[in-house]
Design a protein around this nucleic acid. Structure first.
Lengths: 249, 249
DNA sequence: CGCGACCTTGAGCACTGTCAACGCGGGTGG
DNA sequence: CCACCCGCGTTGACAGTGCTCAAGGTCGCG
């Protein structure tokens, strides 16, 4: 765990010199089907010109739901969670966000979610009104952000499907696959997944109780599909059965 | 029900002469907090120039998941459902869409959902590549679509919260409130909600079984909160308790 | 107006949520 | 450097709720 945090922290000290990155899958067809950089070098420089770089310690609230939305953020490195606290006291995590993701979703000028860091994080902070001005000058930039928003929309729909599953083991497997995709850039052994957040965070994301998450973990272990080593790492033992579970049944 | 369909159908025969509309709540602050028209008259004319108007009968598939995404659609009138059929045979409805909503969500050039009409529908069909060209000429148009996408993103997150609720009655109440908001433009008595889709559609949207939806309806009736009249209309009897249930607990 | 699609209801079961108690481990202060 | 401490994770028992399977009943479209 210590090593893990250190790696993320080191990563955070070397921001891309070219400015912020936005990753996503285009909605129109491209040569490569997978995720691509949505911004040109010129656009990144343009954004870098109006961006402030913030370094934030882990477990820090960046903003709260309902606050005046003055900034849009792009993650340089690290991981954050976007969540809402419901009247009942329950907390629903809408999304985990990683490097090259954007956050700052607002409605009528106010943030709709609260955002808290999970690891140490480096973010590019963009003034919302300055960004709107920039859109006016560069129409292609607006389209890039449209791509990103659409990408997030697809992710949100997948999340809904995930949460509607009845079996806890299936939901957990889907989360693990999500994490595997988003930590692929880290220098980890093949089949090893980094889990930066707590079990409680996972439960709030999956719409399960904390205990059920733990029990589902035990089930995956007992069936020889996944091995949980420590609190923040997992290893895929049986890729076939894992994918079978994680498939959006 | 007959009357209902007729009304929707009549509505469909009188498209706005000014071209397609896009409704949503802005992410930045405006005078009015609620939903606004996102397009200027000039933009609507611009879109109308590249739009084909289609009239589609009810229960018609507009496109299937995985098909090449060549169009973006904007609903003039009527209601559609966007869904995915899962390997298990289950169907998850990602969204119900109404007048002034857009659909045609794609990923790497292919539609991610299937879309089917629920009522007779009038849609504006926009060629995707023509639309992209239009974005290049009018940067503000891209921002308008960005607003719409962000609006849909917030809706998707609310949907996730909805589906993560345990109590069926609460989920059903939330759906009814959604329907109330989206059929408000119809000339219905106050407190009367139009339900264009089947119980099965509702179940697939709420992530419940068909039977549970029916049972939840009976519970709401027994508690004197809602009265279901026929298969496609509901009346709110106790607004206070209804809102209490529908609140995102 | 008739038939098919849709809705309704019941019984039994599987799964998760809740409550409660305990264990583990890293971080901190002496 | 070590020991304490608190957050986090783990496990068990029990009750509640929705899902499945199965069999009627009814609405409303053509």
């Amino acid at each position: 765990m210590l090593e893990n945090l250190k790696r993320l922290a080191d990563h955070a000290t070397t921001p891309s010199p070219r400015g912020p990155s936005l990753r996503g899958v285009m909605f129109h067809a491209t040569d490569q089907g997978g995720a691509v950089e949505l911004l040109t070098d010129a656009q990144r420089q343009q954004l870098a010109a109006i961006a402030k770089i913030d370094r934030v310690a882990r477990r820090t609230t960046i903003y709260r739901e309902g606050a005046i939305a003055e900034n849009l953020f792009i993650i340089g490195s690290g991981a954050v969670k976007a969540f809402r606290d419901l009247p009942s006291g329950k907390r629903r995590i809408a999304a985990f966000l990683f490097a090259e993701d954007a956050f700052g979703l607002s409605e009528a000028g106010r943030y709709v979610n609260s955002v808290q860091t999970i690891t140490p994080v480096m973010v590019y902070r963009l003034d919302a009104s300055l960004l709107r001005e920039t859109f006016k000058r560069d129409s292609a930039l607006g389209v890039s952000f449209l791509c990103k928003a659409v990408h997030e929309l697809r992710a949100a729909q997948r999340h809904t499907i995930l949460v509607s599953r009845r079996q806890a083991t299936g939901r957990l497997a889907m989360l693990l696959r999500l994490l595997e995709q988003n930590t692929a850039h880290l220098d980890l052994q093949k089949g090893v997944i980094e889990i930066p957040m707590t079990r409680s965070d996972i439960a709030n994301y999956l719409g399960l109780s904390l205990e059920t998450v733990v029990r589902a973990s035990r089930v995956l272990e007992r069936q020889g599909i996944v091995d949980f080593v420590g609190r923040h790492h997992a290893r895929i033992l049986n890729r076939h059965r894992f994918e079978q579970l994680a498939a959006a049944f």
